[in-house]
Design a protein around this nucleic acid. Structure first.
Lengths: 308, 308
DNA sequence: TTGTAGGCGTTATCAC
DNA sequence: GTGATAACGCCTACAA
């Protein structure tokens, strides 16, 4: 160790990063790339980003939001490429995992832009971090709750998928099936209905499914558009007999929880996700270490009684 | 509105607080007043404080930890008084609610020292904020989980109290009874055993209780020393048949959760509590507004599957 | 009251 | 390379 570093160790000196930033007048520009706010969850996510802006600004980071059409991977990739030319320092992205998007992110990383994946992971894209919850664990959590809450030895469970954030949703289903299979062998999980993360679509498929099938003792909605599910259950008047579990705490799921039309919600704190993305991106830019415990997003279980 | 403020509004100017602090060489000294680390929860809390120190230091706040004997209210009050003379800017305190302590805090506030209550609230002490979870809601959450998980129409539930953080624990019991009474009328909640937040004491009272009473279908431990409960249940070999719910995620409760000896843990993120206390105290000192959503501590439900 | 110089800890620049 | 210096945005202290 050099003499100076030794002395530093002794004295306990540490660079004043506030002063440093003041001196160099360094600013950061980060871009959030995510789908348009087409459902409650995405609306909440957009709001969280807006809410984080003042604090971010005070911290010398300016934030841009890009909403390429989610269903078009090329549009997302194009957005990422455009961002490269606009001198952004970092990108926080929530998207499906397609080759085009993957390539664009790898190229961005190569161009020195820091990237993090939000909500749904994008492995093998050189994203420095994933900020969100483990999909399999989330699904397992839902599975345990479902099994315990049903309390009967047998019956059918309806499952409603999303489609957009593919990877994430597949993992949830996987985890759910694991626990039901292991610990509640009498329960039968039916093939996933395609809800396309859209309330109206969910309404239709759920309504149809209930007309066809009987002996449904539980419904697990692991995609977006849970409000469609809740409306369908209301219309069918099967709110009480079946155990209903969905993902993400939003105005409709919150209301349903309070009214007893929903038994549990598996959620993640989107405000935390957004703040974390910004902190992590900043740390990446500065070459600093992150505080892992502070950035870990929790799998939250919300019941009627612990609604915040 | 004055011309200048109007202009400020227009321009969108906001004071650079980092530069301000740099200029005035302002430092903050905060003290954490809490019991000695005599159980897993308190150990975790002390660790969280230590872990927060480096970041705090970088932010010009130095932290002191005071551990008056928890069982002696006079010692706590004396500590608070002493802190007044030592030029601390703020106090974050976790303690029982006694007249002496209340008075000392009011006097401290009068002397210009900002105070926040942690974990267990101290209303009517001029504490600017309470940083922790709502005890009644936490108890209700435990109650719902207990009722649903038991799945039988009738049976007895053993409850184990702490003693130290009195107010908090009373609230938990209250909330628990509310839900059991309302929604699970067949279940009977027995009088609380006195566990004194101590593992050994809990071990004794629980062992005795099980020897006396039968038809126990659930155990709710809402005080500290849950490891004693778990050991007792192991020794009695009643791990599987009864539903066991405790508070606070610590090494022993985490292990028990993973091993299936504990069915659920109601918890709060102590690292978050500590960071929040520091942020809130700083904001108070600077006369700034806090970001409520960021400082809200969640009532976390931990199952085996969503252990972080 | 209003104005101005100096300095906080760091970086960047430019001359050496 | 090395070393001196201005500047960053703000506060304090002192002067007018």
């Amino acid at each position: 160790m050099s003499k100076v570093l030794e002395a530093v160790e002794q004295i306990g000196y540490s660079r004043d990063i506030a002063a440093a930033n003041l001196a160099r007048q360094r600013g950061y520009t980060f871009a959030f790339v995510l789908p348009e706010p087409t459902n409650s969850f995405l609306i909440g996510l957009h709001e969280a980003i807006r809410d984080a802006m003042p604090t971010a600004m005070a911290d010398r980071v300016s934030i841009r939001v890009c909403t390429p059409t989610a269903l078009d991977p090329h549009a997302v990739a194009r957005t990422v490429v455009e961002l490269q030319d606009q001198a952004v320092d970092g990108i926080a992205i929530m998207s499906a995992e397609t080759p085009q998007i993957r390539d664009s992110l790898i190229r961005a990383a190569h161009a020195g832009i820091r990237t993090v994946a939000m909500i749904s992971d994008l492995p093998s894209t050189a994203r420095s971090h994933f900020i969100g919850i483990d999909g399999v664990a989330a699904g397992r959590t839902a599975g345990r709750l479902m099994g315990q809450f049903i309390g009967r030895p047998s019956g059918n469970i309806l499952t409603v998928a999303g489609s957009m954030m593919v990877r994430d949703h597949l993992e949830r289903r996987l985890g759910f099936d694991q626990v039901i299979g292991e610990d509640f062998p009498g329960l039968q999980t039916l093939a996933s209905l395609e809800g396309r993360d859209d309330a109206e679509a969910v309404y239709q498929v759920v309504s149809n499914a209930f007309r066809k099938s009987r002996d449904i003792v539980g419904v697990y909605c692991f995609g977006g558009g849970a409000s469609g599910l809740l409306r369908a259950l209301s219309d069918l008047d099967v709110g009480r007999e079946v155990v209903v579990i969905a993902h993400e705490l939003t105005p409709p799921t919150r209301t349903a929880l309070l009214e007893g039309r929903l038994d549990a919600v598996i959620s993640q704190d989107v405000s935390h996700v957004v703040r974390s993305a910004i902190r992590v991106l900043r740390a990446d830019c500065d070459g600093r270490e992150i505080i892992a415990s502070q950035e870990r997003i929790r799998i939250e279980i919300m019941l009627k009684e612990n609604l915040i």
